[in-house]
Amino acid sequence: MTRRHYNKMAAAIVLILAFGLPLVVRSATYLHILVLLYFYAYLTTSWNLVGGFAGVLPLGHAAFVGIGAYTSTILYLQYGISPWIGMLVGGVLASFVGVLIGLPTFKMRGAYFALATLAFAEGIRVMVENIDRLGPFVLNGPRGLQIPPLKLGLGNLVFASKEPYYYIILLMLLAVLALTWVIARSKLGYYLNAGGEEPDAAMALGVNVARSKLTAMAMSSFLTALAGAFYAQFTLYIHPKSVISLDLSFEIAFIALIGGRGSIAGPVLGALLLRPVSDFSRIYFGDTLPGLHLVIFGVVLILVMIFQPRGLQEPLTRAYNRLLDRLAPGQTKELGT
């Protein structure tokens, strides 16, 4: 067997596991944790389009989660529009906002972009907390919005059990991963990479760095907003501190960075490793040791940045390659990152 066969086999095993898991895991609590795990993996993968490939550090992605969640929820509650459509509307709105924030900031370097996105997200949160009604739209300020689970079904994206949510977010995650894979191999991917590493050199070669970053930002914020709408339908309750919080923005960035930004598998790997830490420490130590998981996140983040700046995906990729060397020795290496 060649490397290509092994790669395919590994992918098939992962897919079968992912799709088969709800048949084995019957507990609603564990399914809930898994759904949130995929939700985070989806968010970090979307974040990675800007934070990874474009080489900047967005620290306000919760704003887009919030835009998606609030748009679809308001449209659903007040106008009876299906969350699937609301999701897309929210996505378009978020990508518009993303471009608006990227337009002036992408010309700046490092810190300013991080600060601008952070302040922007916090500004949105403060505004939502202060607004009860925005024209015809009811936002309910800090109290948030509740979705009564009356009309069940795929069209309304409300289900009585966790399984449908599980498959929907899994499919969303696979789609965004496929998209990332395509982008990484496209002209846009190379432009982003070049612009992230050496903006001056890339510009000298005729790459429109700002423009490719804007494209990435538009896509990233669009995708992030979709997940926001999903989250609203999954938890049936959103408020500014849950969907637009600073902690959410940071957690997205942290997970992606620990997993390995700029790689396809990194953000997913980060979510796989870190989400269980946070969930279980919250379940078992939430009362006695509040905030323990965030201490762990912080320590892991610092250690990874010092000793493994390209994320945990790097040593794991190397280990996988060594395994393949042993299974299929003497073959030339396949291209692929």
Partner: peptide, 27 residues
């Protein structure tokens, strides 16, 4: 010239300090 990684690491410090304080002294 302006290492972005330092932002990340100091954010990590932020999280450690804030939550350690929460653990030690309560909210």
């Amino acid at each position: 010239r302006e290492p972005i990684t330092v932002i990340i690491v100091t954010t990590g410090v932020w999280y450690i300090l804030d939550n350690l304080t929460l653990l030690l002294f309560g909210p």
